[in-house]
Amino acid sequence: MLYRITVRNADGEKLEIVVEMSEDEVRALAEELRKAGYEVRVEPIPEGEEP
């Protein structure tokens, strides 16, 4: 499935990426980023919607 991941650092800089991963993989990635001090938001992209 496609997911949009938005990551912000302490300075407020934002990075937005689209990935194709399983829900478990995305959850693990988000958890690791949060542990590293980043603010993370994950949104699933519905099938048929443009990323």
Rank of each mutant, 00 (worst) to 15 (best):
D24F: 14
A30I: 07
E31M: 15
G48H: 12
P44R: 07
R27H: 12
T6L: 11
Y38R: 02
V26Q: 01
R34D: 02
E49Y: 12
P44T: 12
E25R: 06
V40R: 00
I5E: 00
L2K: 11
L2A: 06
E25Q: 10
G37K: 02
I5M: 06
E13S: 14
V26Y: 01
S22R: 08
I5N: 00
R41C: 07
E50L: 11
M1K: 05
G48L: 13
E39P: 01
A28W: 07
E47W: 11
E39Q: 13
Y3M: 03
R4S: 02
E47H: 14
A30P: 00
E32Q: 14
A36G: 08
Y38F: 14
E13N: 15
Y38S: 03
E43K: 05
D24Q: 09
I45P: 03
E32A: 12
E47S: 14
V7W: 15
M1E: 03
K14P: 09
A28L: 12
R34Y: 05
R41W: 05
E39Y: 15
I5D: 00
V7I: 10
R34H: 04
D24V: 11
S22H: 07
R4F: 04
M1D: 02
T6Q: 05
N9F: 14
S22Y: 09
V26P: 00
G12Y: 04
R8H: 09
L2G: 05
V18K: 07
R27K: 08
A30T: 07
Y38W: 07
L15F: 09
R34S: 06
K14M: 10
E23A: 13
E39S: 14
L33G: 01
P46R: 09
P51Q: 08
V42E: 01
V26G: 01
G48K: 12
K35Q: 09
L29T: 04
S22A: 10
L33C: 02
E20P: 03
A30V: 12
P46A: 13
R8F: 15
D24W: 13
L33Y: 15
R34T: 06
R34V: 07
M21L: 12
I45S: 06
V19T: 04
I17G: 02
G37L: 02
D11M: 13
I17C: 04
Y38H: 04
V7S: 05
P51Y: 01
V26K: 00
E16Q: 09
L29R: 04
E25D: 06
G12N: 06
G48N: 13
V7F: 15
V7Q: 02
D11E: 09
E25M: 09
D11Y: 12
A30H: 02
I45C: 06
I5T: 00
V19I: 07
V42I: 12
A36N: 11
